[in-house]
């Protein structure tokens, strides 16, 4: 059974369609890159799948059941700038938030939750910063804290909204390592991605998106010159596109 099946998702803001009839189905244990120009609806697609914004039409199935019933199986890493990093809390606390779904309403985190949070911080090499105030972390470190939080949630399917934006080379490498580890553990990960150069190295599958699905499938066969041109409306020059496709 495929961990994620998206059927004919359509989203509109004020009658203007921003996503039209988006359907795809992801096999287990794959890293999927969602690629497309600005305004193509990449973040919108993620938010619509997670029910943050209403879908005009369409269904999302997680392991065979509607998403609404399977929320606990889906982990979400929002864009880093979506929260106020001056909030009075430390890195460990933020990662602990990933455990809230397991802890349940109005109960305190147990020792094992703290242990799991510490392990997750360790996995993104942030253990020394556990007690550090989040406003004093660099952009890359903040991104790693967000990833650690998603790990602590222990989901089966992960949605990550632009985790590579504005991070240094070391963090980028750490994120890639983490993605591969998740994949080894049979997790399915969808990543909104901007850098066309790295698509072939990072992802097993790609979803080329521009309001509708231009192409979806294994990177090898789908990430082609023609499809890229079609996705970006011919704005990628011949030379750079040829370079990207390799």
């Amino acid at each position: 059974m495929n961990p994620l099946v998206v059927e004919q998702v359509t989203v509109a803001y004020d009658r203007k369609l921003v996503l039209e009839d988006v359907s795809f189905s992801v096999p287990e244990g794959k890293l999927v890159g969602i690629i497309g120009p600005n305004g193509a609806g990449k973040s919108t697609l993620m938010k619509a799948m997670l029910n943050f914004i209403p879908r005009m039409h369409g269904n999302v199935f997680v392991y065979g059941k509607p998403y609404e019933k399977q929320r606990h199986l889906v982990g979400y890493v929002p864009q880093r700038n979506s929260v106020d990093w001056d909030f009075p809390t430390n890195a460990l606390d933020v990662v602990l938030m990933g455990r809230y779904g397991h802890i349940g309403l109005w109960k305190r985190p147990r020792k094992e939750d703290v242990d799991i949070a510490m392990q997750c911080l360790d996995k993104v090499s942030m253990l020394p910063y556990a007690k550090r105030q989040i406003s004093q972390l660099s952009g890359g470190q903040q991104q790693r804290v967000f990833l650690a939080r998603a790990l602590a949630q222990d989901a089966s399917v992960y949605f990550m909204d632009e985790p590579f934006v504005g991070v240094d080379a070391a963090t980028e490498k750490a994120i890639v390592q983490l993605l591969n580890e998740l994949k080894m553990r049979g997790k399915t990960v969808l990543v909104v991605h901007h850098d066309l150069q790295t698509v072939r190295d990072y992802f097993d599958y790609v979803l080329l998106l521009n309001k509708r699905v231009i192409a979806f499938g294994e990177t090898e066969s789908v990430f082609t010159y023609d499809h890229i041109q079609k996705t970006y409306g011919g704005k990628v020059t011949f030379l750079s596109a040829a370079h990207i496709v390799g």
């Binding site: 938010k47 997670l50 943050f52 929320r71 606990h72 979400y76 809230y100 779904g101 309403l105 939080r149």
Partner: peptide, 8 residues
């Protein structure tokens, strides 16, 4: 958004 995602 994250809170919503984990079912709070």
């Amino acid at each position: 958004a994250f809170a919503q995602g984990i079912g709070v």
